[in-house]
Simulated scan of single mutants.
Amino acid sequence: MSTTIDSRIAKLEASLKQAKAQKQKIEARKRAVESKQKRALDTRKKILIGAAIQSMIERGQWSADNLQKIMDQTLVRDDDRALFNLPPKATSNG
């Protein structure tokens, strides 16, 4: 009789282990979806900020020179800087 109880306990423990693994997988998938949504919202926000600033420049409410100065101070990557006709950033090798 002890063998059947031990066998049943082993089956239940295996089932519990499988259920826990499935729960972890579901939670990981949920976190991945939330992270993707957060990145998408962040990207959308940046696009809208850029569109607003660009619109203000076109209407003469904000100086294009101000934008150029901000981009020069902010951008580090050469390909990003090239989009704004900025020279590559000098890098220090020390």
Rank of each mutant, 00 (worst) to 15 (best):
M1P: 03
S2L: 07
S2D: 13
T3V: 07
T3K: 15
T3W: 12
T4Y: 11
I5N: 07
I5Q: 10
I5D: 02
D6Y: 09
D6R: 15
S7Y: 12
S7H: 11
S7M: 06
R8N: 09
R8E: 10
I9K: 11
I9Y: 03
I9P: 00
I9M: 04
K11V: 07
K11P: 00
K11A: 09
L12P: 12
A14K: 01
A14Y: 02
A14M: 07
S15L: 04
S15K: 11
L16F: 08
L16Y: 10
K17H: 06
Q18E: 15
A19M: 12
A19V: 12
K20N: 13
Q22V: 03
K23P: 01
K23L: 08
Q24H: 13
Q24S: 14
Q24R: 15
Q24I: 04
Q24V: 05
Q24L: 14
K25E: 15
I26C: 02
I26F: 04
E27F: 08
A28P: 07
A28G: 05
K30L: 09
K30V: 06
K30C: 02
K30N: 12
R31M: 01
R31W: 03
A32W: 01
A32Q: 13
V33S: 08
V33W: 06
E34L: 12
S35M: 05
S35A: 14
S35I: 00
S35T: 08
K36Y: 13
K36Q: 12
Q37C: 04
K38Y: 08
R39E: 12
R39D: 10
A40D: 14
A40Y: 04
L41V: 07
L41I: 05
D42P: 00
T43M: 00
T43I: 05
T43G: 00
R44A: 09
K45T: 08
K45Y: 06
I47P: 00
L48V: 01
L48E: 10
I49F: 08
I49N: 01
G50N: 12
A51T: 07
A52G: 03
A52S: 11
Q54M: 00
Q54S: 10
S55P: 00
S55Y: 07
S55Q: 11
M56I: 02
E58P: 03
E58K: 14
R59I: 05
G60A: 04
G60I: 01
W62Y: 15
W62L: 14
W62C: 04
W62N: 02
S63R: 13
A64T: 03
A64M: 03
A64S: 10
A64L: 02
A64Q: 04
D65E: 14
D65R: 06
N66H: 10
L67W: 09
K69T: 14
I70F: 08
I70N: 03
M71A: 15
D72P: 05
Q73K: 15
Q73G: 11
Q73S: 12
Q73I: 04
T74Q: 08
T74K: 09
T74R: 08
L75M: 06
L75I: 07
L75T: 08
V76W: 07
R77Q: 13
R77N: 10
D79K: 11
D80S: 09
D80P: 03
D80H: 14
R81K: 10
R81W: 07
A82W: 09
F84I: 05
N85C: 04
N85M: 08
L86R: 14
L86M: 09
L86C: 07
K89I: 08
A90V: 09
A90W: 05
S92G: 12
N93W: 10
